[in-house]
Amino acid sequence: MQKNVNVLLKLFIEYLQVEKNYSQYTVEHYKLDIANFSLFMSEQAIPALEQVTYVDVRIYLTKLYERKLARKSVARKISSLRSFYKFLLREKLVKENPFSLVSIPKAEKRLPDFFYEEEMAELFKACDDSSSLGQRNKALIELLYGTGIRVSECCQIKLKDVDMAVSTVLVHGKGHKERYVPFGSFAHDALSIYIQDGRHKLQSGRAPHDNLFVNFRGGPLTARGVREILNTLIEKSALTGKIHPHMLRHSFATHLLSNGADMRTVQELLGHAFLSSTQVYTHVTNEYLRKTYMSHHPRA
């Protein structure tokens, strides 16, 4: 049975990579979800994918809920398996899709966390640009907040991707999609100092590479490294609470919309394939405006 699943999974992965052009990150999620279902099949003594029934799917759902997984996680697993079977149906490798009648649980409505403009100012104050690492940290924060790019995208940026003459950066996004994103004068100044001074010193005597951001050893900076930098800056600042890298992306979108940017422009800058992904920020900005009103209007 395991061999049966592995062979069909390999075909499906090739389809995702070649025809759908999905990113490696997305493909890994599909592989994990299908591998987990394969273990369930072994436990239930189901010999082959074509013998999975709707009843089996309901039992699988029950086991997922018993593990107290978030609704979003359950929905992703069901969506992955539904897509897998849809592909198998297309290739005439199975006769029916047992996941087609299963309703995907609605995800909890959770608004993205973001920094207020005053909080962003405190975060920038925590960047001491008198040192090489401080120059890197300031350039990193300015670029993340100034462009709204994902941390994974930021870590992939090469020196050649940054055009200082026109203040734009070439971003390699999800699904191998590329987009040019502009950045402002603050990011431009911070990047100039970092590239000409801080990065040069951090790379001195190390194996050369062309990644824009480097760690304290001079090697390429990773997403984990970015998280550690942000946590350190939070501890140095007057801010309290937790921070995650995506908060800077959320802050970028929220502040643009709050200051009058149109939804389509923000969608393009964020690299969202669908406008619905960007529309979540309208709820954030409404709450932002409400809090601002309650804090500042004399009759609130």
Rank of each mutant, 00 (worst) to 15 (best):
V284E: 07
H200F: 14
D189T: 13
E119M: 00
L212H: 03
A165C: 01
P298G: 08
E14P: 09
T285Y: 02
R206P: 07
I195L: 03
K201M: 10
V169M: 04
A75P: 05
E118W: 02
N137D: 11
Y60V: 01
Q279I: 08
S23W: 04
T26A: 02
Q196I: 12
V226C: 09
V18F: 06
L8K: 15
Q24T: 04
M294E: 13
R82C: 05
L256C: 14
Q2D: 15
S23F: 03
M294I: 11
K138S: 07
V266F: 08
R110E: 12
Y15R: 00
V5C: 02
D56H: 15
K125S: 11
K138N: 03
T222L: 02
I141G: 06
S83G: 07
Y194V: 04
K125G: 10
Q135H: 01
I149G: 10
L230Q: 05
N97Q: 06
S237I: 05
L212W: 04
K3H: 13
N6C: 07
N4E: 13
L64G: 08
T222C: 05
F40H: 14
N137Y: 00
I78W: 01
A45I: 14
S23M: 02
V94E: 03
N286F: 12
R71I: 07
I229D: 03
E122Y: 09
L93K: 12
S38H: 10
E287A: 14
F114L: 05
A35Q: 15
E268A: 01
P208G: 06
D129P: 08
T240L: 13
I141N: 04
Q44M: 12
L159K: 00
A165E: 13
E28D: 15
K138M: 06
N137K: 08
L140R: 07
I46V: 08
K95P: 01
L81F: 06
Q24F: 04
T62L: 11
Y54E: 13
F274A: 09
G271N: 09
L230D: 02
K86S: 12
A261C: 10
G225K: 04
S79Q: 01
T292I: 10
L170F: 15
S103I: 11
L233D: 12
L11D: 11
V57N: 04
H272S: 05
D163I: 02
R179T: 08
T292N: 03
H250T: 03
D56T: 15
R67I: 01
E122T: 06
K242A: 11
Y30H: 05
K242L: 06
T282Q: 09
Q203N: 13
S295H: 01
A45M: 14
H255P: 09
S185P: 09
G218P: 02
C127L: 08
Y180T: 14
K68R: 13
L101V: 14
M294Y: 10
I243R: 00
T285R: 09
T62K: 12
I46N: 12
N36G: 01
K138R: 11
D128M: 04
T62W: 00
G225C: 07
E28P: 04
C154G: 02
H296W: 01
D197H: 07
E96F: 14
N231I: 06
Y116M: 08
N36R: 03
D161H: 14
K31G: 01
A126C: 06
A187W: 02
M41Y: 10
Y25V: 00
G205E: 08
H297Y: 05
V55T: 13
E118F: 07
V151Y: 05
I78Y: 05
I157K: 06
